[in-house]
Computed example of a mutant assay.
Amino acid sequence: DAVLAGLRREHEDMLAQAMSQTPTPEMEAKAQNIDWAMHDTFIDALGNEIIAKAYLVNSVKIRLIHQERFRIDGRVVPVMQEHLTVIEALESRDPQKAVEAISRHIDNARRLALQI
């Protein structure tokens, strides 16, 4: 609960900041770190070394090869909103709601990566 509350607070604060001012490179860098930290938190929470290693290898490769397509630049508000939907689903302890929220997030990331 404390971890989810911290993630929610970070995302809500960033969303409020992004909605109240024009994004700056510094804001987008902070938002990118919040984005990556949430993903890392979820992977770590699984406690599965195989998944953790696969995620790490893939995320490093993707970030290096397609850096411009995986950055949050210009998309702070929708990304923070999407993450908050995932966090809300986890807080609700409703497995179906959580699966749907994370599935939408993964699909959106896939679409962005493939530029479709």
Rank of each mutant, 00 (worst) to 15 (best):
P78C: 11
M14R: 07
K97L: 15
R93Q: 15
L56R: 15
S59Q: 15
T24A: 01
L7C: 12
I51E: 09
N58I: 08
E68T: 12
V99T: 15
M38L: 10
L90W: 01
P25S: 04
V99R: 12
I72E: 01
L112Y: 02
K30A: 06
A5R: 14
I116N: 10
T85M: 11
M80V: 05
I116S: 06
M80W: 03
P23L: 00
S92G: 13
I51V: 14
I116R: 15
V99W: 00
R9N: 09
S20R: 12
D107S: 11
I72Y: 07
A89C: 15
V99G: 03
M27G: 02
R75M: 13
L56V: 06
M27C: 02
Y55G: 00
A89E: 08
H66V: 10
E100F: 01
E82T: 12
A18V: 03
H66L: 14
V76I: 15
I106K: 03
N48C: 06
L15R: 15
I116D: 10
G6Q: 07
R8K: 14
F70S: 00
M80F: 04
W36S: 05
M19V: 11
Q81E: 15
R71G: 05
A113S: 08
Q17M: 05
H39E: 13
A45V: 08
R110W: 05
I72Q: 00
G6R: 05
L114E: 12
R110Q: 09
Q96I: 07
M80N: 00
S103C: 03
I62Y: 09
R9I: 03
E91R: 07
A45H: 10
I50R: 15
T24G: 01
A18P: 07
Q17D: 08
E82K: 08
A2E: 13
A54G: 11
T85Q: 11
M80G: 01
A37Y: 08
V77C: 00
G6D: 13
T22D: 13
V79Y: 07
S20C: 02
A18R: 02
A16N: 10
P95L: 00
R75A: 10
I50Q: 13
E91V: 12
E49Y: 09
F70N: 04
M19L: 14
L84Q: 03
L90A: 10
V86A: 11
D44P: 00
N48F: 09
E26D: 14
E100A: 13
F70P: 00
Q32K: 04
Q67G: 11
E28W: 04
L7W: 05
R71D: 03
K61E: 10
E28N: 08
M38P: 09
E28Y: 06
D40N: 10
M38H: 11
S92F: 10
H11E: 11
L46M: 14
L15P: 02
Q32P: 04
